[in-house]
Design a protein around this nucleic acid. Structure first.
Length: 954
RNA sequence: GCUCGCUUAGCUCAGUGGUAGAGUCCCUGCUCGACAUGCAGGUUGUCACUGGUUCGAACCCAGUAGCGAGCACCA
């Protein structure tokens, strides 16, 4: 074995072997319990980031753990088509390469281009996932635009439409003026910004006046340009200032449009001027006011969010109307929102109609993909009526059929579900599932699986011209069907029966509404068990936090603080890292700053750490639902741990190769177990129990810590050292016993650690197998360790813990007194009880090896002893003669420091025990424990004082 | 404005109502026959603040402050 753990030499070859042999597949024995995880489908054209690495580590750990317990285990992989994101990427690529737009290319050709791109780049993330060791069943990989899934999407749409859960309507939607599509309210990001409030004078018609005798009223707005689409001014019915004006009209500046003053609850007397301009086609609140008051709607914007050449006029039902002139003043036509705003303000000012401008804090909606300001736009869109679906979905969480880990996310889920809005599912894109709706020439809509079926069902002959809806469905509509569509639905497949409901969903809290909630709603509506009860998509939802950078900032390309998991694994030199972070940026002006940051934070580049170390780090930091601030130091620490584990294995293998180890194939099986052998086996059982509990409760951080502590400090720190005297000096039976234990314990540890660190454990296990001659082809399919209570030897545990204390006490003296570890010591012992005496006799070899003792001499209590440095283990006094070794002043300092600390503890505890209320109220066990501690501390204090006095007396 | 989460060693994070923990950093000494990605020893904390409950609070409760997130409002 190599002296230093070298992950690159072992990872890929093992992965390729696993995949080739089909170990990732469910074993298919349905008499065994099944277990299934559906991966949250990454974007098909995406690449792996730290968040994926984190979630994939968690999922793979769970899956490997369950698989090793013999379950029929499926981890289903797949990608989604990521409508907007993918279309954007290909559009940009097309334009860069040919200068063509998608419109110039035409829909069909463009879609073919996207498929080509998908074939080319779709494998990237899968290749990257393989580097992480993910044991997904690659043969079952699915894509949301596959035939099967597309069929499911169509059926769901048609069925929901027939159940009146999908409808089409002219509504105000969130319109993205850059991407030219509607987006759902979840895809809108609100940002707080400083802006202005403009106050305009709106002239009253027919010589009406306000109470003060003014011939205008004042409205306030943050969006002056929308005034071109005003169709009313609302005041509160109770407002004494304006009550008398209700029913009168305003002459809207520029267009001279006559618009009514109406009474509406929306107008708040306390707010602004009390008068609200109403623009139903360009503001969500105004839209509602318009509906209530039957105001016409004037759309004055193009899909680019510029002022149109002429407005489109609708009545309050959305029907085209001629109640108002569509004309828009020429000077505004074609202006952007920003330019139109400036011009409206300056022209109103010129007309003497600008009353005031005030600074104003407001929230601006941005598209999460395009980062441009979203525009409320009046368009025809398809919606899912969500409220009826939400009810069942909420109950599933309330009654515990679905559990959130950590639990507090249930509140978030519930609060969203109770106030849920209809979901706009149509997108004005080309890449996605085309909406299965057709229109005849009168605009009548027909929904069905295909045109042929629709003609048949509606007796439409070929003289009726049908055209399919141009729009596609929101990507989340298809991902919402993920758990069951990937298993073959709507066919009644064996997979569905075996693996649905799935067991655990591992995902980030940021898509709890986008995906998780919608998946629950969709699944429970379409999947029913044999009794007709809605099936949940998964029983447990494990929510991960975000991986942030070392300063707690979100990782993003524009900040240049993104870390690539593969760079953690393989390492990367500084120049490549700088190039990677600064190249291909949306905002190239940031590159300089990012370069500087990067050179500072990663002056030496990034070292290779290997997949197992990365996975171990992620697991160790996965405490429930919290964001993780990434820390390279933790990664390095756990890489060192891998090396430690590797070298411990190396020691075991070197010590046992070609030696009798008491496995079946050995001729002579006689073995004698040492105290250390019995102790480590016992400790291992406790560890298995705690470790399994941690995994069962999704506490991967605790699991990782248990492994770390046991392997490094118990197995390596104590046990391996304790095997050395046996292997070097013991008799044959003792050596066999120790070798047998070394191998057994290591083999168990490998299986224990395998779910978190698959590569290293497999590599070592294969080598260990040659020594044991036992086991199957791969550690992946070995049984996960179970607790064997028979292996716990209480006496051995107590004896060895005593031994550790004695050794540590002597090492303390050495360390603090600066006695070289090379110098052998003669230990004198006082106040030893029967057990102490026995333990000294039984463990002479261990003591000599680990504490470098030359001799141990028991002294009677009253026997005189030379001047010594001393230590205590309980009442047992350990004495190291000082002659020639120890400076008495140093020993005094050391003892005084100990005494000080002990006295402090003593004072605390005696104070407690002197408190009558403590003694009368605390449980007896606690009191006894405190009394025990008190006695011990008292005796320690006394002994320390004695020792101090002895030295002082010199 | 509402809701939720967080605040523990220089840094990144665990933590059970009964004397504060890990990794990393720091200091001292070590080429001890697995490992210098190591070994031995050491230092490090008003557990954000203020009250309350309790014999006893880092832990339970209330409030305050700071940070973060989600939602709402925004004429």
């Amino acid at each position: 074995m190599e002296k230093t753990y070298n992950p690159s030499a072992i990872e890929q070859k093992n992965y390729q072997n696993w995949e080739k042999k089909g170990y990732f597949k469910p074993h298919g024995d349905t008499s065994k319990e099944s277990f299934c995880i559906m991966i949250p489908p990454p974007n098909v054209t995406g690449s792996l980031h730290m968040g994926h690495a984190f979630q994939d580590t968690i999922m793979d750990t769970i899956i490997r753990y369950q698989r090793m317990q013999g379950k029929n285990t499926l981890w289903q992989h797949g990608t989604d088509h990521a409508g907007i994101a993918t279309q954007m990427v290909v559009e940009r690529k097309l334009f860069a390469e040919t200068g063509q737009t998608r419109q110039e290319l035409g829909r069909e050709t463009f879609i073919n281009k996207i498929w080509e791109w998908k074939e080319e780049s779709g494998g990237t993330i899968c290749k990257q996932m393989r580097r992480l060791g993910t044991s997904v069943d690659w043969d079952r990989e699915r894509f949301t635009m596959d035939d099967g899934l597309s069929k499911a999407v169509k059926k769901v749409f048609v069925d929901l439409y027939n159940d009146d859960l999908i409808y089409r309507g002219k509504r105000l939607v969130n319109w993205d003026p850059k991407l030219h599509t509607a987006i759902s309210d979840l895809e809108v990001e609100s940002k707080d910004e400083q802006g202005f409030m403009w106050y305009f004078r709106y002239p009253l018609a027919d010589n009406a006046t306000t109470l003060e005798g003014k011939n205008y009223i004042v409205v306030a707005t943050t969006r002056p340009e929308t005034m071109l689409g005003d169709t009313g001014v609302a005041v509160n019915a109770e407002d004494p200032r304006y009550k008398h004006l209700i029913g009168k009209n305003i002459v809207l500046p520029f267009t001279q449009r006559l618009i009514p003053i109406i009474a509406d609850e929306h107008a708040d007397m306390e707010k602004g001027t009390g008068c609200v301009k109403i623009t139903p086609a360009h503001d969500f609140n105004d839209y509602e006011v318009g509906k209530r008051n039957k105001l016409p709607m004037l759309n004055i914007l193009t899909f680019d969010a510029r002022i149109a050449k002429e407005a489109t006029v609708f009545d309050s039902n959305g029907e085209v109307s001629d109640v108002y002139s569509a004309a828009l003043p020429i000077q505004f036509q074609g202006l952007t929102r920003e330019d139109a705003r400036k011009l409206v303000v300056s022209e109103l000012d010129a007309l003497g109609l600008l009353e005031d401008i005030k600074a104003h804090a407001l929230t601006i909606p941005y598209g999460d993909r395009s980062a441009v300001i979203i525009e409320p736009m009046l368009t025809d869109q398809w919606y899912v009526r969500v409220a009826p679906l939400a009810e069942t979905a909420t109950q599933a969480v309330e009654n515990g059929d679905i559990k959130f880990v950590p639990q507090q996310y249930e509140n978030l889920y519930k609060s969203w579900m109770t106030d849920i809005k209809d979901w706009c599912i149509s997108r004005q894109l080309w890449w996605g599932h085309r909406i299965p709706a057709w229109y005849d020439e009168n605009g009548k809509v027909y929904v069905g699986h295909n045109e042929e079926q629709i003609r048949k069902d509606n007796q439409l002959d070929t003289t009726v011209k049908l055209t399919q809806d141009e729009d596609v469905l929101d990507t989340w509509f298809s991902s919402g069907l993920w758990t069951f569509s990937t298993l073959g639905w709507p066919e009644k497949t064996l997979d569905l029966k075996t693996f649905h409901s799935t067991d655990v969903l591992v995902t980030g809290f940021d898509i709890i509404f986008f995906w998780v909630a919608r998946m629950i709603m969709m699944t429970m509506h379409f999947m029913k068990d044999e009794n007709g009860k809605p099936q949940v998509p998964f029983k447990t939802i494990y929510m991960t936090g975000l991986i942030r950078d070392e300063n707690g900032d979100k990782m993003s390309k524009s900040k240049g603080n993104v870390l690539d998991p593969l760079d953690m694994i393989d390492g990367i030199d500084l120049e490549s890292l700088v190039t990677k972070r600064c190249g291909n940026m949306m905002q190239p002006q940031l590159a300089k700053k990012i370069e500087k940051q990067t050179r500072k934070a990663f002056a030496g580049g990034i070292e290779a750490h290997g997949t197992d170390a990365l996975r171990f780090t992620l697991a160790a930091m996965a405490s429930t639902g919290r964001d993780i601030n990434w820390d390279m130091n933790r990664l390095e620490g756990y890489r060192n741990f891998c090396n430690k584990f590797w070298n411990a294995s190396r020691y075991v293998i070197m010590s046992c190769t070609d030696m009798p180890c008491a496995f079946n194939h050995d001729a002579d099986n006689k073995q004698q177990l040492s105290l250390a052998d019995r102790w480590i086996q016992g400790q291992l059982q406790t560890t298995i129990k705690e470790y399994r509990h941690a995994l069962d409760t999704f506490r991967f951080d605790i699991a990782a810590n248990i492994l770390y502590e046991f392997i490094w400090h118990q197995f390596c720190g104590w046990y391996l050292e304790l095997t050395k005297p046996v292997l070097f000096k013991g008799n044959e039976a003792e050596q066999r016993g120790t070798r047998h234990t070394l191998i057994s314990v290591l083999e168990t540890l490998l299986r224990l650690a395998h779910p978190i660190m698959p590569f290293m454990t497999e590599e070592i296990w294969q080598r260990l197998k040659e020594l044991t001659g036992q086991g199957g082809d791969t550690i992946m399919l070995e049984a996960f360790p179970e607790v064997n209570a028979n292996l716990v030897d209480k006496q051995a545990v107590e004896d060895l813990e005593w031994l550790k204390k004695v050794i540590v006490a002597i090492r303390n003296i050495r360390g603090e007194m600066d006695i070289s570890p090379k110098i052998p010591l003669n230990l004198l012992v006082k106040n030893a009880n029967k057990d102490d005496a026995r333990r000294f006799t039984e463990n002479a070899d261990f003591l000599s090896a680990l504490a470098k003792l030359e001799s141990v001499t028991m002294l009677k209590n009253d026997e005189k002893n030379p001047i010594c440095a001393t230590a205590l283990v309980g009442n047992l006094e350990l004495l190291i003669p000082m002659a020639g070794l120890i400076d008495s002043k140093a020993e005094l300092t050391r003892l005084n420091k100990k005494l000080e600390k002990t006295s402090k503890d003593l004072a605390k505890i005696s104070g407690k025990l002197n408190n009558a209320r403590f003694v009368s109220n605390a449980p007896q066990a606690v009191i006894d424990k405190e009394r025990g501690k008190l006695a011990e501390l008292q005796s320690t204090c006394e002994k320390l004082e004695q020792q101090i006095n002895t030295i002082k007396a010199l």
